[in-house]
Simulated scan of single mutants.
Amino acid sequence: MANTPTLMLELLTSTLAQPGLGWVAFITVVAGIVYGFAGFGSALIFMPVATIFWVPELAVASFSVSALASLVTLVPRAWGQMDKPSVFTMIGCSVLGAPIGIYILRVSDVVHIRWAVLAVAAVTLAALVSGWRQKLSEYRATQAGVGFSAGFVGGATGLLGPVMLLFQLSGTAPVAQVRANSLVFLTISSLLLLPSMAVQNMLSGQAVALGVLLLIPYGAGAMLGQAIFIPRFEVFYRTTAYAIIAIAILMGLPIWD
């Protein structure tokens, strides 16, 4: 039986040989920068491109592991600005919705999931660019429904942000609080996808290794994005995020295969 160092070396070798790793590492840096200055958009950028090279479950799991970086780089500053009761309610309910979404991810055809990722990303981008707003109640029941829906969509496609982000934008909270709510929700909910994936045998050593490897570019990008964020230029940052998300969606279209 191979010893532990040999197994670790084999895992590292196979991880570094993963197809498209260079492209995915690059897009991870870009996703981190956008996440740092906009407070959203990282998965909308990462998933369309990563699923060109990797099967969706590998992309979802590795990106969830890389979210560990945000616990250090972004969450500490956002923690004091967020609406804690609202965010905790949504996180708790996202944990309930995620296993159902992960099951859908596990049993669905890879191409169908890729199109689903692109469809969710495109609809979200269209809503953001158009300035769509749908006033929703801010009762706990609504927040619970938003969290459950976000968990379900996140489990199936890796895109936890769209449902929660559109709900946040429908309210009247200050921009700083919306950004903080999104940062904390997305970071913690991404990490909480991992136990559900493990239970359904979708968290491989390869996924964990790739996620750990992506921690560095993602964390570095997030720190850079946070450092260059200037609140009075919020419209510029948001427009930049929209443009990058659009490029990622176009790159991820299966028709280019």
Rank of each mutant, 00 (worst) to 15 (best):
A2M: 02
L9M: 09
E10C: 10
S14A: 14
T15N: 07
A17C: 10
G20D: 06
G20A: 06
T28K: 10
A31P: 02
A31M: 03
G32C: 15
V34P: 07
V34Q: 10
G36Y: 04
F37E: 11
G39K: 06
S42E: 14
S42M: 12
L44W: 01
L44H: 01
F46W: 09
F46K: 05
M47V: 07
P48F: 05
A50N: 03
F53G: 11
W54A: 00
V55Y: 08
P56K: 13
E57D: 10
L58K: 09
A61M: 04
S64C: 14
A67K: 09
A67I: 04
A69W: 05
S70R: 13
T73F: 04
P85N: 00
S86A: 02
F88S: 01
I91C: 04
C93D: 05
C93I: 00
P99A: 09
I102K: 04
I102C: 09
S108D: 11
V110Q: 13
V111G: 09
H112P: 10
I113R: 02
W115N: 09
A116T: 13
V120C: 08
A121G: 10
L125V: 06
A127D: 09
S130K: 10
G131E: 05
W132Q: 10
E138C: 01
Y139V: 05
A141Y: 00
Q143M: 12
A144T: 00
G145R: 01
V146R: 07
A150D: 10
G151P: 00
A156P: 07
T157R: 01
G158Q: 08
G158V: 04
L159E: 02
V163E: 08
V163D: 06
L165W: 07
L166R: 01
L166E: 02
S170M: 08
S170H: 10
T172S: 12
Q177P: 14
R179N: 03
A180L: 03
S182T: 02
S182I: 02
L183H: 03
V184T: 01
F185G: 03
I188R: 03
G205A: 14
G205F: 12
Q206C: 04
V208H: 04
V212I: 15
V212M: 13
V212R: 11
L215T: 11
P217M: 07
P217Q: 09
Y218R: 10
M223A: 15
M223C: 12
I228K: 09
F229N: 12
I230R: 15
I230Q: 15
F233M: 14
Y237L: 12
R238K: 08
T240I: 13
T240D: 12
A243M: 14
I244D: 12
I247C: 14
I247T: 13
G252M: 08
L253M: 15
P254F: 08
P254R: 05
I255C: 11
I255K: 14
